[in-house]
């Protein structure tokens, strides 16, 4: 069982690495959105440093969604999703592993890019540690919640836009606690750790519950 899970994880990671396009697109999108922000708001460094944490989080959510429909789509197209449903791994676990692969392939690279973009937005130096922690704690929720949207819209036309409409409202708690932990680290009031711990809790809940919902949606799509 564990070997099958690891094999699935390795396969998904290899596919997303060899394909290349998905990671590159997400990173490029993230970069572009953050670069466009000062052009829209003006080059005032004080203003930018105040909104940096929020902009980094919002752009990360959008970039994560950009590749969300690929979580199940390629397997659906080439038929390996049918094999997964017949195989020894429970579909819930398979959905969880595929979300995990999405997190490793998208969430972690985006997290690593974030501090570079923080420089562009004049994020205060003492916020970088908390920014990385909050992104690391929050991006699993981003990937796992996106998997629900990907499973619900599997094989539909215009599924990308639909995923955004379905999943973005669910991202509200992640966004709020992610940003508030970073801004509490710079400006206060209060300790950033409480927001960070709640963010971890949200991620853990979504890691447990969203594969169940995603698997149910996959079964509904494969009647």
């Amino acid at each position: 069982m564990i070997r099958a899970c690891l094999a699935l994880l390795r396969r998904d990671l290899t596919l997303s690495w060899r394909e290349g396009g998905a990671i590159g697109t997400a990173l490029g999108f993230y970069f572009t959105v953050v670069v466009l922000t000062p052009l829209g708001l003006g080059p005032d460094l004080n203003l930018l440093s105040r909104i940096a944490a929020g902009m980094l989080w919002v752009a990360l959510l959008l970039a994560g969604l950009l590749s969300a429909d690929r979580i199940f789509h390629n397997d659906y197209e080439d038929g390996s999703l049918d094999l997964l449903m017949l195989g020894p791994i429970p579909l819930e676990l398979a959905a969880g592993i595929k979300s995990l692969a999405h997190w490793i392939a998208t969430g972690i690279p985006l997290t690593l890019l974030a501090p570079v973009l923080g420089l562009l937005l004049n994020l205060p130096i003492d916020a970088y540690g908390m920014l990385m922690l909050s992104l690391l704690a929050g991006t699993p929720a981003v990937s796992f919640l996106a998997a629900i949207g990907a499973a619900l819209t599997l094989g539909l036309r215009r599924s990308g836009v639909l995923i955004a409409l379905l999943v973005l409202p669910l991202y509200v708690p992640v966004l709020i606690f992610g940003v508030s932990s970073v801004s509490a680290a710079t400006t206060g009031p209060g300790s950033p750790w409480s927001a960070l711990l709640i963010l971890c809790a949200i991620s853990l809940i979504s890691i447990v519950l969203s594969p169940i919902a995603a698997a149910a949606a996959l079964r509904a799509s494969q009647r």
Binding site: L152, S159, L166, A213, R223
Partner: peptide, 15 residues
Amino acid sequence: AIEDPVRAARATAIL
């Protein structure tokens, strides 16, 4: 967005 009525029923129920 979903044409098949049974799938639409299940998917919206999950959502």
